[in-house]
């Protein structure tokens, strides 16, 4: 990419460099949301449905973790994945996988906390009916997660928004390597530091547009689903 053309022009002309950056951004953030969902939804559901000592404390901590500073997550994952760190032998530092890991760590608490709230509310509503139908613990979780799926989409979207917007974690663990670990947000940070503010703003507009598009798609899916399930 050269700095003289605006990002919007690059989009319109199908610039392959920009396309690769957008593609990588989406791949990383969507993968992170997927993994964070696979972790966060069951954990949130478990906390919602289980009484154990210290549960209130866990909920407070989980809610607080929603505000984890990305750069702290980045640093922690960096230290873990560094060749001098405990997971150094994986050789993942400065790779897209490291970025997925960092964003998963960042997003999982958000999804878990919102899932916990959603499932707990629905559980209060369903509790008697499920007991009367003699539904066991596993079936309970499956039913609540399935019936709350449209609300859980909102939790996943919140996670995606957070992942797609953050730069602090992925720039530390990804290294912003051109053509390899450069995403929209790290490119924006770089172009800002190079003083190419129009390109940075252009990239920012592309980023916002994509986030809006994904939210719109998810919203449409949610509305369509609600029409049949209520």
């Amino acid at each position: 990419m050269t700095g003289d053309v605006s990002a919007l022009q690059l989009v319109l002309s199908g610039d392959p460099g920009l396309f690769a950056i957008v593609r990588l951004s989406l791949l990383i953030s969507l993968s992170a949301v997927l993994f964070a969902g696979l972790i966060g939804v069951p954990v949130g559901a478990f906390i919602a449905l289980t009484l154990f000592p210290g549960r209130e404390g866990v909920i407070v901590v989980l809610n607080a973790l929603m505000g984890l500073p990305p750069v702290v997550v980045g640093l922690a994952v960096f230290l873990a994945l560094s060749r001098s760190g405990p997971l150094g032998s994986w050789g993942l530092l400065f790779t897209p996988q490291a970025m997925v890991i960092a964003q998963t760590v960042l997003v999982a608490p958000i999804i878990a906390a919102l899932t916990r709230q959603t499932i707990e509310d629905l559980w209060v509503e369903y509790r008697d009916e499920l007991a009367a139908m003699n539904i066991g613990p596993a079936g309970r979780v499956a039913t609540l997660v399935w019936d709350a799926r449209f609300s859980l989409v909102t939790a996943l979207l919140a996670g995606f928004g957070r992942a797609a917007a953050e730069v602090g974690a992925i720039i530390v663990v990804g290294g912003n390597i051109e053509g390899f670990t450069r995403t929209m947000t790290t490119a924006i940070a770089l172009e800002t530091s190079k003083g190419d503010l129009p390109l940075a703003i252009g990239l920012g507009i592309v980023l916002i547009f994509i986030v809006i598009l994904i939210n719109a798609l998810a919203w449409a899916a949610r509305r369509a689903g609600e029409r049949t399930a209520g």
Binding site: L27, I28, L30, S31, L34, F35, L38, F94, T95, P96, Q97, V100, G175, I177, F180
Partner: peptide
């Protein structure tokens, strides 16, 4: 479907650098 998606994402994320990692330095 979820597991399939997860596997897919893993595959994509893993495949991207695998080809480049062969001959590369940081």
């Amino acid at each position: 479907r979820r597991i399939l998606l997860a596997a897919l994402a893993l595959g994509i994320a893993a495949a991207a650098p695998a080809s480049a990692q062969e001959k590369s330095i940081v």
